[in-house]
Write a protein that binds this DNA or RNA. Structure first.
Length: 897
DNA sequence: GAGTTTGAAACT
DNA sequence: CAGTTTCAAACTC
């Protein structure tokens, strides 16, 4: 719940909460400019707005987590909004709705909480109403929403229905937590019916709308719907993203407005489909109103607005994306006001902001979109402070083991659900002390999310369950939101941390243990480190400690944001990658099509960047970070007697050998490369050699040596998360250096060199790769570490990536600003890889450009990537499957535990 | 729930 | 950079 502290928290400068607090309080929104924000702003104004938020985020710093959290290329993977897609989503929503019934139960069980929540909501309402910022917030949110709107038109519609129902049920303006989150029971039931109904109609209506003239649709809709809605639509339609209008509405966010407006317009231009989706959404919502059982007819302006706000809330709460969509299309002052009236609204808004951004990133293929997503990522921290409700963003997919564990274990959908459950818990925790209710809620969420996992890749979820689904999609897309999510979660706790602290250690411990497995959130129990060291999972994950934590003397709280930031900086100064994801995901060398054939990498192929050092646990217990992350051990591991069920080091080595052999063949064709070198390079690349998929890789390499080479080249250091490890030949094992940094550093040891390398590799290699990789594999995962070539270079490269739909741009954008910033001192990289993987000395870099025999040739690359995250190129379906698999694994583990 | 084990992080 | 210590999670009883 909103904690007064947060609002009070004097963190003017970088306060993560500042934005959130601003939204709540009348105070003008503090939009700070930061290098990152500036960078973003350069790309798109919208981003800039987000950037401001980013600054606020505690993680915000240039800290790697944010970087890593940045949306992945995956957005590329997402198809632009289209009628078909929308229809699919609608179906998915329908499923979700059906599942929502399950949620109902949980909701009912936790109704007791609702009352309390309402009270708090009222408080919040007061605070929110005080300022016009709320409106601004809505506006602010609205922009990102567009993207979502396109995608989640159906879901949004459903949400709208829900909101209608909610409106009826809660005309008094108070929304039950149920309604807000999941829609009340009644709503759920109605929604279910409506969903079914809609699902049938949604496709037709959507398509029709898409095809039909937007204006006509809107006009019709407006006529049919309440005038208030029409006002909103008019405004929306006329301006949609008219900045001027927004400016009027949102004075506080003036700067953001422009940015948003531009970004939105750009986005729209780029993604006309999204617009259609939005429109369809609007029309659909109206249609729903007419079709639905809900007595839309009687709706007054306010009612309609309220509906919107409600739906928006529901969307936001349940699913950020849908919310964003709704907000985007609907964003009206009234609606905003109404929304703001609800305490949850504020939180939801914040969430919606971040979520919307996320959605944008996911959907967008444009650089701007990417930036937006990044911004969104950054924005999440804001939520942290204010939002009692946590946004259900993809949880940690990958950054830290902590997050990884969660994500992996839960499966993405599961993770999302868990997040949601946690959010609910945290939300309810304050008011509701009944753990059973909480558990029930979480369980319900899990249930809901579980079935959904297999469903649509990218559904926009109106309901909580759908939310988890969407999150899942996001994760699959490549968002590494874990830290953010956690933040949010923790933010819910917000001031509630005190409560946690107050809780008996045992109780906390239990929660922790439970939370880790059940909630998918790992929580710390630090006693001496004050949660300011990497020992602390929360801190390591870039999130504040929260309710589940049983830490003592914790400083990893919003109140101590400065301290946290400083500490992080210190740690990062020592080890820039300290907060980087521990799990590296393979970059897809092969075109998507190939992967579909069986080459596609799955999370299982992920590897621990540093590798484990287990000696007694045989990598069969959670002591082993590899095992904990559900990834197999690799050469990088120095474990003894490895029996990792996810992949033994031995197997990995064998695979490597096989690969090397195949590589030899390929090499013979291309260029002579020392076998040893190849081997090492491959070793460096866990993905290709993953024990799980050795045969395929080997075969590919052998058969398509040329292709592999090309790909490998293109695959240079992946920026993605932290590091991309170029394949270089090196001595088998070098003592591990400080951290993964070594790898990264090696790759990008000198920014200039790295650039050269990247640019050279791209430029020189691209021509070939282009033809070969026309399939559009993502080679570049925006890796923060990876030095970004100047824009000029990028342009050159863009051509290469053009086939990929501008992935390159996106990736580039994804690159953490820290990494991007050349000025930023990058810790000198050591030649030795931490895991003993020896990285080729800098000279390799020089060679890259000039000679084909460069280290890149091996084509093996390491990319640090969130474990849960899916290979960028991998189809969402695949990702899901992998997620499911991981989740299953996780469940198994849980059961075992 | 207390105590032990384990391995990562931090320190020297 | 290697070795040691510290730490907190994971695990066992």
């Amino acid at each position: 719940m909103d904690s007064p502290k947060l609002s009070k928290s004097p963190i003017p400068s970088a306060s993560a909460f500042a934005s959130a607090s601003a939204s709540i309080s009348s105070s003008s929104s503090p939009v700070q400019e930061s290098p990152f924000s500036n960078y973003i702003s350069s790309l798109s104004p919208i981003k800039h707005d987000k950037a401001a938020h980013v600054a606020q985020g505690f993680v915000g710093l240039s800290s790697p987590p944010l970087v890593f959290t940045s949306p992945r290329i995956n957005t590329l993977g997402r198809p632009q909004s289209s009628s078909v897609e929308i229809s699919q989503k609608c179906e998915g929503d329908k499923k979700i709705i059906n599942e929502s019934c399950i949620l109902e139960r949980s909701v009912t069980e936790s109704q007791g909480l609702v009352t309390d929540i309402k009270n708090e909501d009222n408080k919040d309402d007061v605070a929110v109403q005080l300022g016009s910022s709320s409106e601004c917030v809505d506006e602010y949110l609205a922009d990102p929403v567009e993207t979502d709107c396109a995608k989640s038109a159906c879901s949004v519609k459903l949400n709208l229905k829900q909101s209608n129902n909610v409106l009826q049920s809660s005309v008094d303006g108070l929304l039950d937590l149920k309604n807000i989150k999941f829609g009340s029971k009644n709503n759920v039931g109605r929604e279910v019916d409506a969903a079914q109904f809609l699902s049938g109609q949604s496709e037709e209506s959507i398509e029709r709308k898409l095809t039909s003239d937007e204006k006509l649709l809107k006009i019709e809709n407006e006529q049919g719907s309440a005038q208030g809605i029409s006002d909103g639509f008019q405004k929306f339609e006329s301006d949609r993203f008219d900045l001027s209008s927004k400016e009027k509405e949102c004075k506080n966010f003036g700067p953001q407005k422009d940015g948003r407006g531009d970004g939105c317009s750009n986005f729209l231009q780029q993604l006309p489909g999204s617009l259609l989706g939005v429109q369809s959404y609007e029309g659909f919502a109206k249609n729903i109103g007419g079709d639905a059982d809900v007595p839309v007819h009687s709706m007054t302006h306010e009612a309609s607005e309220l509906q919107r706000s409600m739906s928006r809330r529901c969307l936001q709460f349940g699913e950020a994306q849908p919310e964003a969509t709704a907000t985007c299309s609907i964003s009206t002052n009234r609606a905003n006001n109404i929304i703001s009236s609800t305490s949850l609204a504020t939180n939801s808004e914040t969430e919606s902001l971040s979520s919307s951004h996320l959605d944008l990133s996911a959907k967008s293929r444009t650089r701007q979109l990417v930036n937006l997503s990044q911004l969104a990522m950054n924005m999440i921290p804001q939520c942290y402070g204010n939002s009692s409700l946590t946004v259900l963003k993809p949880s940690g997919i990958g950054l830290h083991l902590n997050s990884i564990v969660n994500a992996t274990s839960m499966g993405q959908g599961g993770t999302a659900s868990m997040k949601l459950a946690q959010a609910i818990k945290s939300t309810s925790t304050t008011s509701c002390q009944t753990t059973e209710n909480i558990d029930n809620c979480s369980d319900a969420f899990e249930k809901v999310s579980t079935p959904q996992e297999g469903a649509l890749e990218q559904k926009v979820c109106t309901i909580a369950g759908s939310a988890s689904e969407s999150l899942f999609a996001e994760e699959s897309v490549g968002f590494h939101m874990t830290p953010n999510t956690k933040r949010k979660f923790s933010s819910e706790d917000g001031d509630g941390n005190d409560m946690f602290d107050q809780q008996s250690p045992i109780k906390k411990r239990k929660k922790l243990s439970n939370s880790t497995d059940g909630d998918g959130c790992k929580r710390c129990n630090c006693k001496k480190t004050k949660c300011l060291k990497l020992y602390c999972d929360c801190f390591a994950a870039g999130i504040y400690c929260a309710e589940p934590c049983s830490c003592q003397g914790c400083f990893n709280r919003p109140e101590y944001e400065e301290t946290v930031l400083e500490t992080r900086k210190q740690i990062e100064s020592r080890n820039p990658l300290a907060f980087a994801p521990k799990i590296v995901q393979p970059v897809t060398e092969f075109p998507l099509s190939n992967r579909e054939d069986g080459n596609r990498k799955t999370p299982s192929s992920a590897r621990h960047k540093r590798g484990c050092n287990c000696k007694r646990s045989m990598c069969l217990k959670k002591y082993c970070e590899c095992y904990q992350a559900n990834v197999g051990c690799s050469i990088g591991c120095r474990c003894e007697g490895c029996k990792n069920v996810y992949g033994k080091k031995k197997d990995y080595c064998v695979t490597e050998e096989m690969v090397n052999r195949s590589g030899e063949i390929s090499e013979s064709r291309v260029a002579a490369k020392p076998k040893k070198e190849i081997f090492h390079s491959e070793l460096c690349d866990p993905y290709h050699l993953t024990p799980l998929t050795p045969s395929v890789q080997c075969s590919d390499h052998g058969k398509n040596a040329s292709i592999s080479r090309l790909l490998s080249r293109r695959c240079l250091p992946s920026p993605e998360s932290d590091l991309t490890v170029l394949s270089y030949a090196k001595s088998p094992r070098s003592p591990r250096t400080s951290d993964t940094n070594d790898i990264l550093l090696e790759t990008s040891s000198s920014s200039s060199k790295a650039r050269e390398l990247t640019s050279l590799s791209r430029v020189q290699l691209d021509p070939r790769s282009r033809s070969l990789t026309s399939g559009g594999s993502l080679h570049w995962h925006s890796s923060p570490i990876m030095p970004m070539s100047p824009l000029n270079d990028n342009k050159k490269l863009q051509g290469l990536d053009s086939a990929d739909g501008g992935l390159y741009d996106i990736l580039e954008d994804d690159m953490p600003e820290v990494l991007k910033d050349t000025s930023m001192p990058i810790k000198p990289v050591k030649a030795g890889s931490p895991n003993g993987k020896r990285v080729s000395p800098p000279h390799n870099l020089h060679q890259l450009g000039s000679s084909s025999s460069g280290p890149l040739r091996s084509g093996r690359k390491f990319i640090l990537k969130a474990v849960p995250s899916f290979p960028p190129l991998t189809p969402c379906i695949d990702a899901k499957g992998s997620c499911n698999q991981s989740r299953n694994n996780f469940q198994e583990n849980r059961s075992n535990d």
